[in-house]
């Protein structure tokens, strides 16, 4: 089966389109998260997503709307992480740990209690972009537009806060408002990325493309664009290869992400960038 034949399948078209949108969303937000040392928030929110999916499954939400239904809980949890992160008694990584443990524990208990939907729930651990629904494609499109618009409108504020939050505050930037925006968008990105890569690999979607782009030592805007490009390329290559070789798409996409990171890091060592 050739590449053109693969692209004729409607579900593959939908998967690639949704995958590209989600890749762009997670990598754009990932640049801010990685630089602010919130890399592990993806892991934390993914675990929360697991708990949230368990809750909405228990309520009996239709499988087509599970992603949408899980969103409010994950968004609330992201705000809880933000609140705890700014507590003087708890460090950011510990805050993520607390909320993430709560999410995974809730998921496991609910799965154990109901018994009947364990298989469905555990399928979210590994994700499957090829099963993306029309609703999820629309959701991805809306979130992509929201993310790009937010970053463009508040670019100066996001840049200043990423450089130094305290310094940004002294410039009159409403840092709390920008943090809330970043964390809420990240929560949505984590839920969507779960569909692409699975709960186990959500943080890879947020971390790897920005890390690859940072190797290129470009300015801030170019770094964001490069991260999105690497992420989108990984998704396209990953989906096509997964389909051709009958591999899990999530894992294949992440392997491509790691491949690009190693390739760029290696190339940089052999041919250092001119100054």
């Amino acid at each position: 089966m050739g590449l053109v034949d693969i692209l004729n399948y409607e579900f593959v078209q939908r998967a690639i389109l949704a995958g590209m949108l989600i890749a762009a969303i997670s990598s754009i937000l990932g640049v801010f998260l990685v630089l602010r040392r919130f890399s592990l928030i993806g892991d934390g929110l993914a675990h929360i997503t697991f708990g949230s999916v368990a809750v909405v499954m228990l309520i009996g939400v239709s499988p087509a709307y599970i992603t949408l239904a899980a969103l409010p809980l994950v968004m609330l949890s992201s705000l809880a992480i933000l609140k705890l992160t700014h507590s003087r008694r708890i460090h950011g990584d510990a805050a993520i740990g607390i909320v993430s443990s709560l999410g995974i524990a809730t998921g496991i208990i609910l799965a154990g209690l109901s018994g009947g939907y364990n298989l469905d729930l555990f399928s979210y651990l590994f994700g499957n972009i090829l099963t993306v629904t029309q609703t999820e494609l629309w959701l991805s499109f809306i979130v992509f537009l929201t993310t790009v618009a937010t970053v463009v409108i508040f670019y100066n504020d996001f840049f200043a806060i990423t450089f130094d939050e305290e310094l940004a505050q002294t410039m009159g930037i409403k840092t709390k408002r920008i943090n809330v925006l970043l964390f809420l968008l990240t929560a949505v990105a984590a839920v969507l990325a779960m569909k692409v890569a699975g709960i186990m690999l959500v943080s890879a979607m947020l971390i790897l493309p920005p890390l690859t782009a940072l190797q290129l030592s470009m300015n801030f805007k170019k770094t964001i664009i490069a991260a999105a490009c690497f992420s989108i390329l990984s998704v396209i290559c990953g989906i096509v290869l997964a389909f051709l070789l009958n591999l899990p798409a999530g894992g294949t996409i992440v392997i491509f992400n790691i491949g690009f990171l190693l390739l760029i890091s290696g190339a940089k060592k052999i041919w250092p960038l001119p100054r």
Binding site: L35, R36, R37, F159, T162, F163, D164, E165, E166, L167, T170, A213, L214, S217, M218, N219, F220, K222, T223
Partner: peptide
């Protein structure tokens, strides 16, 4: 304002 140090500054910060 010139702070004592930029606590979050890392060597890979992509700002010119």
């Amino acid at each position: 304002y010139l702070p004592q140090r930029i606590s979050s500054l890392n060597n890979h910060f992509p700002g010119t």
